[in-house]
Design a protein around this nucleic acid. Sequence first.
DNA 1: TATTATTTACCCACTTTTACCCACTTTTAA
DNA 2: TTAAAAGTGGGTAAAAGTGGGTAAATAATA
Lengths: 151, 151
Amino acid sequence: MSSFIGQFKYTIDTKGRINIPAKFRKAISPEANETFVITRGMDDCIWAYPLDEWSKFEEKLRQLSTNQKDHRLYIRMATSYASESRLDKQGRIAIPQYLIDLVKIEKEILITGSLDKLEIWNPNTYEEHMKEYEQSYEILAEKIDKNRNLT
Amino acid sequence: MSSFIGQFKYTIDTKGRINIPAKFRKAISPEANETFVITRGMDDCIWAYPLDEWSKFEEKLRQLSTNQKDHRLYIRMATSYASESRLDKQGRIAIPQYLIDLVKIEKEILITGSLDKLEIWNPNTYEEHMKEYEQSYEILAEKIDKNRNLT
DNA sequence: TATTATTTACCCACTTTTACCCACTTTTAA
DNA sequence: TTAAAAGTGGGTAAAAGTGGGTAAATAATA
């Protein structure tokens, strides 16, 4: 089981490649076969799943019903933006142009670890996002704690 | 079991042929015999099932009852538009004219992976469709998550 | 049924894109 | 201070995608 934490700044090159932090590369489980599935994330970022983690997610998607519109749309959101990409010899993966456009990435990117997957942000978007919910950390914690037992 | 993800832009040529993404061709199981069943999809796109996946779907259709009008109509929708097509040496399939007309495809097409099947779109239709439900990804996820345990 | 017309499938060739490899620069750590 | 590791950039061969000619198969017509 992979476990990613932390944040790292990189640049995306003219060929659409981005570096994966060395720390993360070391944390990927062998079952992932050095492969990521990159797709649209939530809150305007890109999600990158190691292949083994993606498979688990996909398994859940397959249990949904194509006959229900909500399910169909959800599956479409998750799969049609997805792209498989293997680490090259330098430890980089290729990001498809449509995802770069979707989350408005230019030259600078921010990669964050989020337990089972990575998030790829436009650094400005990330900053605004965190600023917007800055005050809510404590509030969220309490809210979640009411339902589940977190700490 | 095939698993298709991602989106790819192609053109349909004067002979009505479209390319199948190389990545998808590699993902087709041998049982499909390089053959697709192409039929009318939902939300204004065409669905293309590898033959083995179509067989599974067909099996489900057979369990419905011709004596019930709803079932009868549903079976008719799913089957009467269907057409079998084999990959040519270049990895292309032929799309029947009535389906091209149905979803208003012109020169440009967009092929997306949707786990067990492919979706073939007019790129404009896809864009409008995704824009319409753009804000809903997060909402859908929460909605689905309330019933099932998705993430 | 024979002949012609039309469609389909196969093959070849050209263009574009991708993946792989190598090399340089910068950062980290001893 | 130096060696190793990490990160960045770019050339090139191989793969993927596109277009079109021709033969085979099918359909249409006399």
